[in-house]
Computed example of a mutant assay.
Amino acid sequence: MRHPGTRWGLCLREDDRLIGTCGLFGWNAGWRQCTIGYELLPRHQGAGLMHEALQAAIGWGHEHRQLHRIEAIVHPDNQPSITLLRRLGFEQEGRLRDGARWGGRFHDMLLFAHIHTPAGAA
Rank of each mutant, 00 (worst) to 15 (best):
H3V: 15
T6K: 11
T6L: 14
L12T: 06
D15M: 04
D15Q: 03
D15K: 03
G20Y: 09
G20E: 13
C22K: 07
G23Q: 12
L24M: 12
L24Y: 12
L24Q: 15
L24E: 14
F25G: 10
W27Q: 13
R32W: 04
R32L: 14
R32Y: 12
Q33F: 12
T35L: 09
T35K: 15
T35Q: 11
G37Y: 11
Y38A: 06
L41V: 01
L41K: 02
G48H: 04
G48L: 01
H51Q: 04
Q55D: 03
Q55Y: 02
Q55E: 05
Q55N: 00
Q55L: 01
H64I: 12
R65P: 07
Q66S: 10
L67Q: 13
A72K: 06
I73Y: 14
V74G: 07
P76E: 02
P76D: 08
D77T: 08
D77F: 08
N78P: 04
Q79L: 09
Q79F: 13
Q79C: 10
S81M: 03
S81K: 01
S81H: 03
R86D: 05
L88V: 05
E91Q: 06
R95G: 06
L96C: 02
R97H: 11
D98L: 06
G99H: 12
A100L: 08
R105I: 09
R105D: 08
F106K: 05
F106R: 03
H107I: 00
D108R: 10
P118T: 11
G120Q: 00
